[in-house]
């Protein structure tokens, strides 16, 4: 039975590539999450997987491959057969790691073919007990009189790049304090041990609502719909702060365009549903459908951008 199915697939491949795209997927698709179960990537992957498998009539298996940051899972996908049956869910860190780590076991550009963008969530600059500022102007004044310490969830993470980008744009200098993960970082900002944290809106929103933290600016070009009272950095007078947490889907390099576009189209269909919008809204995120080519360009641009910032701020593993 299985043999017959493979034979059919092979025959179809010989026929025409468009036929392949129409038949895709002819067997279960594996969606690799390069982290352990339970994280934001995992939850998103499961939601997407459920919807795609309903649409495709083929199971989409979410496979957790944690290890080495996200390097082990990412390397696995970049080496998998380029047939669209092994996909990776990646996040913004994917474009930041190469700027910081020299010897990654995969090539973020040559190893992958970008497939689809899923959604974005802005970062928000939050302060706790140690910084009394109520708005960004007061904050900038404090930051000019004393060197503030910003918490990060590790060297070269989106929190650090976000904070550095903000500091460079605002013309202030801050020092990083590194934590193992966002939870520890957040705790110390609430407790007033570290001064600020450039957090994803997802994590920070409940704490801003609860009064433990004050959100001063968001880093997207528009205000976040979940917290419309917080101005964007641009509105507050700090220009050029454009960094968001995002998630996207990548395939191994060499995957045929027809298959990539087919998956892209189907994911964008999922992103258009109310259910998915609601699902993302829970994480304070919004769906951002785009073409595979646009997503590829976005990755290229970000890789370049983070490299520049890393050089300026001297962010590197040393």
């Amino acid at each position: 039975m299985k043999f017959v199915r493979y034979a059919l697939t092979a025959a179809a491949m010989a026929f025409a590539t468009t036929a392949v795209a129409q038949q895709f997927p002819a067997k279960p698709v594996t969606l690799v999450v390069p982290f352990a179960a339970g994280g934001s990537n995992d939850i998103l992957a499961r939601h997407l997987g459920d919807n795609l498998s309903k649409m495709w009539g083929q199971p989409v298996v979410v496979s957790n491959m944690p290890g080495a940051g996200a390097a082990i899972g990412s390397a696995h996908v970049s080496k998998a057969p380029a047939d669209g049956y092994t996909l990776l869910i990646a996040s913004v860190t994917f474009t930041m790691n190469p700027a910081v780590q020299k010897n990654l076991p995969f090539d973020p550009v040559k190893g992958f073919k970008p497939v689809a963008m899923i959604g974005k969530v802005p970062l928000v600059l939050v302060v706790g007990k140690s910084v009394p500022a109520k708005n960004i102007q007061e904050f900038l004044q404090t930051a000019k009189t004393k060197e503030l310490a910003y918490a990060t969830s590790g060297v070269g993470t989106v929190n650090q790049f976000g904070a550095e980008l903000f500091a460079q744009s605002a013309g202030i200098k801050m020092i990083p304090v590194h934590y193992k993960g966002g939870s520890e970082a957040m705790t110390d900002v609430i407790g007033g041990h570290a001064d600020l944290f450039m957090s994803s809106m997802t994590q920070a929103l409940p704490l801003i609502r609860g009064g433990q933290l004050r959100g001063l600016v968001v880093t997207s070009d528009q205000r976040a719909s979940v917290a419309p009272e917080i101005p964007t950095a641009d509105e507050a007078g700090v220009k050029g702060v454009d960094v968001e947490q995002w998630w996207g889907i990548l395939a191994p390099a060499g995957t045929p365009d027809e298959i990539v576009n087919k998956i892209n189209g189907d994911i964008n269909k999922v992103l258009g549903t109310e259910a998915t919008k609601e699902f993302l809204a829970r994480d304070a995120a919004r769906p951002t459908p785009m073409s595979a080519q646009a997503f590829g360009k976005l990755i290229q641009d970000e890789l370049q951008k983070w490299r520049t910032i890393a050089e300026k701020a001297d962010i590197q593993a040393q």
């Binding site: 352990a36 179960a37 339970g38 994280g39 995992d42 939850i43 499961r46 939870s183 957040m186 705790t187 609430i190 994590q203 929103l205 409940p206 704490l207 609502r209 609860g210 009064g211 433990q212 829970r282 994480d283």
Partner: peptide
């Protein structure tokens, strides 16, 4: 009380809550 996990196990439990549409936090 805050939605901040204290250990890897707690992080998993928290993840599970989020899957079930409960955003743990002060509220």
């Amino acid at each position: 009380t805050l939605g901040i996990p204290g250990s890897a196990t707690m992080a998993l439990m928290l993840g599970a809550m989020i899957v079930h549409n409960i955003q743990p936090g002060p509220q």
